[in-house]
Write a protein that binds this DNA or RNA. Sequence first.
RNA 1: GGUCCGGUGGCAGAGUGGUUAUGCAGUGGAUUGCAAAUCCAUGUACGGGGGUUCGAUUCCCUCCCGGACCUCCA
Length: 459
Amino acid sequence: MAITIYNSYSGEREVFVPHDSKRVTVYVCGPTVYNNAHIGNARPAVVFDVLVRLLRHLYGSKHVIYARNITDVDDKINAAATSEGVPISTITERYIKIYHRDVAALGVLPPNFEPRATDHIEEMKLMIERLISKGHAYASGGHVLFDVSSYPEYGALSKCNQDEIIAGARVEVAPYKKNPSDFVLWKPSVDGQPGWASIWGVGRPGWHLECSAMIESHLGETIDIHAGGRDLLFPHHENEIAQSVCAHDGKTFARYWMHNGFVNIDHEKMSKSVGNITLVSDLLDEAPGEAIRYALLSAHYRQPLSWSSASLSLARRNLDRIYEALRLLEDVRLEASPIPAPTVLAALEDDLNTPKAMAEMAALVRLANTAQDERARREAKSSLIGSGALLGILEHDPTKWFAQGVEVDTNEIDELIEARNSAREAKDYKKADQIRDDLNARGVVIEDSNLGTTWRITK
RNA sequence: GGUCCGGUGGCAGAGUGGUUAUGCAGUGGAUUGCAAAUCCAUGUACGGGGGUUCGAUUCCCUCCCGGACCUCCA
């Protein structure tokens, strides 16, 4: 079975065939590090983490090369640095750390490469020179601009022809441009703005250039999958295509384009003006990272995701149910490494249909909870854990999962449960129920089963 | 104005030209000392109007509603 991907470039679902199955290349546009990571930053990280997990499963982890960049030079970063009176590296280092911490808490595996713009200034300058020499770029007033008229295919990704783009332009055209659609490859740095020496003067790269340059140097001239947020489709990705294709004499830049939808907060766009920016770090105080991840995966990646406290608690509940099934299988020992269920695998292969995968997980849970013999129970456990690994969930021990989050003395709970069970044996139900009610009041729920009494935290 | 994407049962959210999505919540039952958990059962859902079709939530047209992007800002 092969993966099907909705390719934003063609606007159609396509069967994914890597250029070289021994070297599958994926690039995802990562964060611009000028503030805290919010839930909208987390979505592509999580979604494409699932993609990479799936690719590694199918092609072998050695054969998948995944790069996710960090934009560490940018005017927003400059503004933050200026207002704090510190060098930009102070800002970027701070927020890179936070991003790494937050995204790791969501079970996102580190990419093979995490290139930073400031480490690739030379590569970018070389690319500019190549574009100029091939007649695709020109220097003007300290700027270097990409000449859009030299690339007739411009607009193919965003499905906009140049006339339409110009007609809709709402920003004044800079005087140094030949054509309104031309975009900056290099811009001058003045008044202490961070800059690098170049033959065009001290300056810094245009935003789009870094991805083209870093993809070229880490992954090659043509990559298999290029992904990122939907907002990046135009102009960022459109411009990347123009730069890379022209620098490489018409060679295809990315063979498949994937774009994830936005996260809305309570059905409203997340924005500073509304004041509903939801930070990952705040959510981590409310719920385990895995629950946040589950919530992010509960809608299809191309659809808008409505985030709310209800969606998060629902995610947690659903995850609890799966962990409950795992806990009931705690006595089952797996002899081989876990294998994903074909149903879950098929769902993910179908354009990363994570909600369908979740539904299949629910079916596995029922299977696990009704399994009679040892073999069925072993298979159920293997499927659950193997499938969970593709989704990046179920990475905790069930008992620990249910104990996390609330300050409780586990020894005390065990003692109370023992006392309750003694009372039950003595048929002193009044006392037994009293103990249970007390624990309930503290957020500890008691569950009796054939395997004994277990407990979990509720919130 | 241009381009694109959506509108599914109380909520979340898949999918399909004719057969149960799934989960949560609700209801009934089993189990349990009682619970919890689990299991079983259960709901005239597919924005409005046309059309194509033996048959459309699923294809086409149209209308209404919502959202995204439309450049130097990343």
